[in-house]
């Protein structure tokens, strides 16, 4: 019997799910609603200078990498297991497309966070 490769993806899925449940809605609200409309946050909270300073610090880099990559892995796994509802059969190709996108996003985020400097 062939061992399933799903435990690896399932744990990333679980970690991303937990993280998005804890902070996802709050992040969307702060960055997408509160900051642009100036609702109860400092006016330059999301200014370029603040954002780049955040991304240059080690804690900020780790936070951004974890949020971007785990959310992607969570979505990739969820989408992979929902594909049959769209009439797309699960298989190596669909797996490569879903998990490949998450891997690509993780690599791009890592490279960008390193390129932005310290």
């Amino acid at each position: 019997m062939k061992r399933s490769n799903q435990p690896f993806f399932w744990l990333l899925f679980g970690a991303g799910g937990m993280l998005s449940a804890l902070i996802g809605a709050m992040l969307v609200f702060i960055t997408g609603v509160a900051a642009p409309l100036g609702l109860g946050v400092h006016a330059d909270l999301m200014s370029h200078a603040n954002a780049i300073a955040f991304a240059r610090g080690i804690p900020g880099k780790l936070f951004l990498l974890v949020v971007v990559s785990l959310f992607l892995w969570h979505a990739a796994h969820r989408i992979y297991h929902s594909l049959h509802d769209l009439g797309i059969p699960p298989g190596p190709l669909a797996q490569a497309a879903c998990y490949g996108t998450a891997l690509l996003g993780t690599v791009v985020a890592t490279v960008a966070l390193l390129a932005i400097g310290f």
Partner: peptide, 14 residues
Amino acid sequence: MELVNSEEGVWACT
């Protein structure tokens, strides 16, 4: 556990 871990095992469950 060999059966549980396999592709036919628990991982097909969503």
